[in-house]
Amino acid sequence: MNFSVVTSQFWPLLINGLAVGLIYVLISLGYTMVYGVLRLINFANSEIFMVGTFATVIVTRDVFHYTSAHDALHGWKLIASLLLLLIASMLFSGVTAVLVELVAYRRLRSKGTNRLASLISAIGTSIMISEGVRILTKSAPVPTPRLLSKFNLFTIGSVAIRIDTFMVIIAAALIFFLVDRFVTKTLLGKAIRAVSMSEETSKLMGINLNRVISATFLIGGLVTGAAAFLYMQVYENTVFNIGFNLGLAAFTAAVLGGIGNIRGAFYGGLTLGLFEQFASAVIGGQWKAVTVFTVLVLVLLFRPNGLFGEAIQQSRV
């Protein structure tokens, strides 16, 4: 226990907490949006994230042929590479998410079986993906070549902000803003919200349920893929079970904000990211997963609708 770090390291912890929190926000959208339409936890979302991290590595290494010996990129080449990587990672994750829906949920949904069957089928799909990758990578962690030379961009007060942290914060906030606009303003977004309010009524209104559910999985997957790309730019390493702890944390973030609620996920992710950073500075990083889990159980016990209660519940997906 070392409480003095909270004051002495306040600014770096705050900035890191923001960056981690925003990554959680993006992953938790994959949980929260699917929960909104299906009322089921998207157990494979952690694997969708994992696929995104590997997509980043594969495209950097095998398509762009960058190696770790490669000099860092500059100028337009850097920006173009990063953008292409972001798109590739999003696409891989998005396609995986749509496939997950087809394999794990669709048939069971059309038969109208009980929830237990869908849950087990989703868990099976998740294990299939992560084990497939484990066998392919022989359980070894896979590094990605560094594209971005990590210099300090500027300093606020006493803390230097590194370019990758800065990029994560700006990009993640921007992506979240776009998703939020999409869901509230477009026709498809409206359809998604309608399905999440009432499946029956939206069917009667002529909404193609299967299409909307696929679209929801796609959007959730795209956003999770973006999170995977951003994560890889900061941490530069991935492994087959990387999604396990991140997935649990992102799910906790979704529950914190009230699951099914997009804006809630934003606050939930930030709260959890900051809390986790400060807590692990105080009690040690190896207890991070335990902290997150404790938060999850406490929230489910005392505020199962999320920390922010009914006011935000109105703006459910």
Binding site: L108, A117, S118, I120, S121, G124, S126, I127, M128, I129
Partner: peptide, 10 residues
């Protein structure tokens, strides 16, 4: 086992 879970459930 993963495949078993999915196939059996479906």
């Amino acid at each position: 086992f993963g495949i078993t879970l999915v196939v059996i459930m479906n």
